[in-house]
């Protein structure tokens, strides 16, 4: 698969906080989900990629053209006294590939008013406007920081479908950071998990969803589990929960114990809050 972005030893320091060094490459035709708790470095990573922050290391895009990148940032957009019509007038003078008819068809599809100031739109409508603006110059790479926050489930589904349509072209890639990990379970191909500025997991969604699991057991059973089978664990008054990497292998090894499937939310909580044996 063609690489669309490659980062080498990407590092950014903010006082006590250090992002990286992050290494990795993003292939075309995929959706990469960036997850992590608040303050894990997701926005810093995205801003470093976009050169909004000056980070150390190497960032190599498939193309040097900014025309090919569409962006949605968290809390940063056009001044809110402008309207969607104004945005159209501005963007058609910024992007050579700006597609007026596509932009207006998106406005219609998402019931976004043309002449209403951004400040008078609801949070969800504003977010939708940001997304359709990012899509209307035919980018090849979408970089989206929390694009679905503030959207109700119905609109979120519409937006996620839009992302899935976008990705049908194998030259297209999406890097998407979100708190709503259930969205990524539906659409992401890869998961990049940041914790305290470090990449703690870089894996395909299929591997995570199909092979990772949570083993549930009591205190006596817990003492019988080998240390190498425990990635993270948590203890509560009801017993132990253990994050395991190979669900089937663990099921065979400990046939009397329950091993459940995992969600990305479970994974996040375990990696951040779980204990290491």
């Amino acid at each position: 698969m063609k690489k669309i972005l490659e980062v080498k030893k990407l590092k950014k320091s903010y006082g006590d906080f250090v992002l990286g060094p992050v290494d990795g490459s993003f292939p075309g035709g995929v959706i990469v989900g960036l997850i992590g708790e608040n303050g894990a470095g997701k926005t810093t990573f995205i801003k470093s990629l976009l050169k909004i922050l000056q980070a150390e290391g190497e960032i190599q895009f498939f193309s040097n053209k900014k025309e090919d990148i569409g962006v949605v940032l968290d809390n940063s957009f056009f001044p809110e006294i402008l309207t969607a019509e104004d945005i159209h007038k501005i963007m058609k003078n910024i992007y050579k590939n700006w597609d007026s008819s596509l932009f207006f068809s998106y406005l219609e599809k998402f019931s976004l008013p043309k002449n209403k100031a951004i400040k008078n739109l609801s949070k969800g409508m504003r977010k939708k406007l940001e997304i359709v603006t990012a899509l209307s110059h035919h980018p090849k790479f979408l970089i989206l920081d929390e694009p679905t926050s503030g959207l109700d489930p119905v609109v979120r589904k519409e937006v996620l479908d839009l992302f899935l349509d976008f990705i049908q072209d194998e030259d297209h890639t999406i890097l998407l950071s979100t708190h709503i990990t259930s969205d990524l379970e539906h659409i992401a191909d890869y998961i990049l998990f940041l914790d305290k500025g470090k990449v703690v997991l870089e894996e395909t969604r299929d591997v995570i969803m199909d092979t990772y699991g949570i083993l549930k057991c009591g205190k006596d059973e817990f003492s019988k589990i080998s240390k190498e089978d425990v990635w993270r664990y948590s203890e509560s008054r009801y017993g132990y929960e253990i994050l395991v990497k190979d669900r089937d292998k663990i099921k065979k090894k400990y046939p009397n114990m329950i091993v459940d499937k995992i969600t990305l939310e479970d994974l996040m909580v375990f990696v951040v809050k779980g204990r290491i044996l």
Binding site: L50, K66, S76, F77, E80, I94, I143
Partner: peptide
């Protein structure tokens, strides 16, 4: 207006 709406980070990502 630019400062209040945090326009600059977004502007930097545009084709300018």
């Amino acid at each position: 207006y630019d400062e209040y709406n945090k326009w600059d980070p977004y502007a930097i990502t545009l084709a300018v």
